[in-house]
Amino acid sequence: MTIKKILVVDDSPTERLALSEVLVKSGYQVVTAESGDEAVIKSKTEMPDLILMDVVMPGTNGYQATRTIVRDDVTRNIPVIICTSKGLETDKIWGLRQGAYDYMVKPLDHATLLEKIRAMG
């Protein structure tokens, strides 16, 4: 699977912008969403190759959105990397149980993230 289009989901405009800039400079097409609900909708309308999902957001949180996306026949093959400030081992285990492909703790090391993305595709 080649990763070309990435959906960045975060309720923080600063976080979305910073991550988008890093990804665009690395040659990826970026689509953004600011909530779990918007992420679920855009996962179907945009069909990204990868989703970077925050957890703590108003309304549908990142865990719930990830679970919804990976259980839907249309979007189940889109890998989700959870990118969150929730760094406890139990948080990570819970995120992976929701169907996340990987789990990274903020502040994100952009070089490590790009390495993981390249390794996927």
Rank of each mutant, 00 (worst) to 15 (best):
E15R: 03
I81L: 02
I93T: 13
E115S: 14
R71H: 14
M53Q: 07
T2A: 13
D72T: 07
M57P: 06
V55Q: 01
V22L: 10
V70D: 05
D49H: 10
A18F: 10
D49K: 06
L114F: 09
I69C: 06
D37Q: 14
R16G: 06
I81A: 01
D54S: 06
R97S: 15
W94E: 14
P13R: 10
G62C: 11
D49R: 03
A111I: 09
H110L: 03
A111H: 09
G95N: 09
E15C: 08
V105A: 03
L108Y: 04
M53D: 03
D10P: 06
I82L: 09
W94K: 13
R67T: 11
I82S: 03
T32S: 15
E21S: 11
K4R: 15
V80W: 00
L52G: 00
R118K: 15
D109E: 15
T60Q: 11
Q98I: 01
E15W: 03
Y63A: 02
V24K: 15
G99E: 08
Q98S: 08
T2M: 13
G87K: 05
G121A: 12
T60G: 02
V40T: 09
R118W: 08
P79R: 10
E115F: 15
A65I: 01
Q98T: 13
L114P: 06
A18V: 11
T112W: 02
V56C: 07
V9M: 02
Y103C: 01
D73H: 10
D11I: 04
Y101E: 04
D72Y: 05
A119T: 10
V40Y: 04
L108D: 07
V24T: 15
L88H: 12
L23Q: 03
Q29E: 15
D73Q: 14
Y28I: 07
T32A: 12
T60N: 05
K5E: 12
G59S: 10
S26F: 08
T90K: 14
I93G: 04
V80Q: 01
G59Q: 11
N77I: 07
V24L: 09
A65K: 00
R97G: 11
E115I: 05
L50P: 02
V74E: 15
G99Q: 07
D72E: 12
E115Y: 13
V70P: 07
G62L: 04
G99K: 07
